[in-house]
Amino acid sequence: MWQAIYEELRGAGLEIIAVAFDAAGTAAVEAKIRCPDIAERPTMIADLMGWSPELWAQQAPPTYPCLIDETHLVAELYGMVNVPQGVWIDEQGRIVRPAESAGTIDMVRHLNRETLELPDAAVKAGASARMAYIDALRDWVKNGEKSPYALPPEEVKRRMKGPGEAEVLAATHAKLGRHLFAQGDNAGGRRHFAEASRLCPDSWNYRRQSMVLEPELIGQLNTAPEFWAAVDALGDTPYYPPADLSPVR
């Protein structure tokens, strides 16, 4: 998907940098990116990501940099609380759109929890959210700061939530948790990721990390009862808050 966009917009000056938040390391990421048969990945994941079957089938291995971020450094630096999220950075290194859902709708809410299937209407809505996001990206690549989707600094600041005390404490627990996992102390690792999730219930990265550190769960959507309980606990708050693409000028 992003490879096709990259090929389209590279000539117009767009670079794509993908960052994999993966505590399981290079091997796990490589297996996903260089999967010999991309079609082996579950349809439900394609649907969740808003990928059409055509795009899914055409998916080629990326030629843009795919970086491995085992410690979720980029998540912490940019305040990314879920995946997929995107940030737009201009030629001067200025953020023009801070972290936001990269063209998804709140798919998890539409998922049938028994069959893990998405209704067609939700699949369509997801695909059109994805297209709207990509069209906005195209507009920015073409028009730069004149694009209605390139946000002025005041609006970037308004949308960026800097971390509070709970967030930095949670990040510290996660740091300790990763260290304990690396030392083979899985129980200790889980304890600190649980504490990070408790302190920072908005961050799905901590839940996901504690999950991917369980080798048999890598590559699976987390469908444990605790996951659904956490989604339900959000009430009306979306799991994937949709990107606000209203034009600013």
């Binding site: 992003w2 993908a18 796990a28 996903k32 940030v87 950075i89 290194g93 991917v212 890598i218």
Partner: peptide, 18 residues
Amino acid sequence: KLSDYRGKKVYLYSWGSY
């Protein structure tokens, strides 16, 4: 390094291992 790409527009996106 992100700063290696200064002078170009960068779309930075995150994903998980699924």
